[in-house]
Design a protein around this nucleic acid. Structure first.
Lengths: 193, 193
DNA sequence: ATCTCCATGTAACTCGTTACATGATTTT
DNA sequence: AAAATCATGTAACGAGTTACATGGAGAT
């Protein structure tokens, strides 16, 4: 030992690093643009604020998974556009093949429904109607996106970014439909009694 | 000012506090028992480790949302059984009526699918098959639970804990079925090309 | 003998959000 | 004139996981 402290040789790579790589695999982007895509379109399954993104971008450069060059920008600080490297592409492929630790999920609405029997049914119906509105809006957003894709006739084949977009979008639509059906079923149960 | 530091008058109540209250609204429990229920049955929509639970239990007592009494236990430290108070029940009801901030969700599998076009389709099929197995197992667990409920003939009516159990379980089943259908569709697409 | 379950607590760390900070350009 | 958008960074905090710590009872 040289300094008396235990240091992990390689701190774990956060999943956000792979989320950013998956964006950079498609096109070179600035941190700001990645932030936009982490709201939409991939906000469907991954989100991050800019305060979380920028430190990870530094990390990607350290690892040589991406390189950056300063471009013209309108911010008070230099604007950098990031490009994925071959090493970065290899890291992304390795992550795809790595075993998945199933994520835990926390669902506010389900928790409220679990506790809802303590309150007046009108309260529960109220929160379900709110959820119904949100899910209906989200569903129509996704459906509009799918309609735009389909307007261009033939679907991209598997192995293309376009197909991957469509596959994830399809799950988003299925999720919102399933949620809506359940919320409406529950409202019916509560109002029918 | 008395000490020169800015202190927030009331630190925010974490959602976990309400998750614990929703358990205590049904029955008096020890911290350990709450930990078990946060794996199953309510692990479906909320989870927590014991290291997160115990500090929140202290908080519940401070707020007078629950009281505890030392009971006979087999641990090296005194075992406490918590009981919800009227104030706690009121707090739970108030939370049910409070506006919901929609939770962000992060989905590892969707992210991998989004990035999957960079890798060999066999890799993607592999990770989808793994997911298929996990979801099929989870679905059969839920179905077994529902079968057990239904064996007791008539369903509990809305406004009862039994109905709330059933409602959340129903959503779990719907979720797993939707996921499975999507995963199988995707495998079909990848193998068919 | 070893493993699992019972049972509670703290410490260290990572992940994620909110707030602070700065400043030009475009839209309302 | 005010607000939104572009654009990047740090600080403080809350949420959540892993690891440390302790020790008896019952099962394999």
């Amino acid at each position: 030992m040289t300094d008396g402290t235990a240091r992990p040789a390689r701190p774990a790579i956060p999943t956000l690093a792979y989320a950013l790589l998956s964006l950079l695999a498609r096109e070179a982007l600035t941190g700001y643009e990645m932030g936009q895509r982490l709201r939409d379109p991939i906000g469907l399954f991954w989100q991050a604020r800019h305060s979380q993104i920028y430190p990870v971008l530094g990390r990607l450069e350290e690892l040589d998974w991406a390189t950056s060059q300063v471009i013209d920008g309108r911010g008070p600080r230099p604007t950098r556009r990031y490009t994925i490297t071959d090493v970065g592409m290899a890291a992304l492929r390795a992550w795809l093949a790595a075993p998945q630790a199933r994520r835990t999920s926390r669902d506010d609405l389900l928790l409220r429904v679990y506790a809802s029997w303590v309150a007046d049914p009108a309260i529960t119906v109220g929160l379900l109607r709110e959820a119904e509105t949100r899910h209906a809006e989200q569903l129509s957003t996704y459906l509009a996106r799918r309609a735009k894709v389909r307007a261009g006739e033939a679907l991209d084949p598997p192995g293309t970014p376009g197909f991957a977009d469509y596959a994830t979008l399809r799950r988003g639509i299925g999720y919102e439909r399933g949620r809506l059906a359940w919320v409406r079923w529950l409202i019916g149960q509560l109002e029918g009694s």
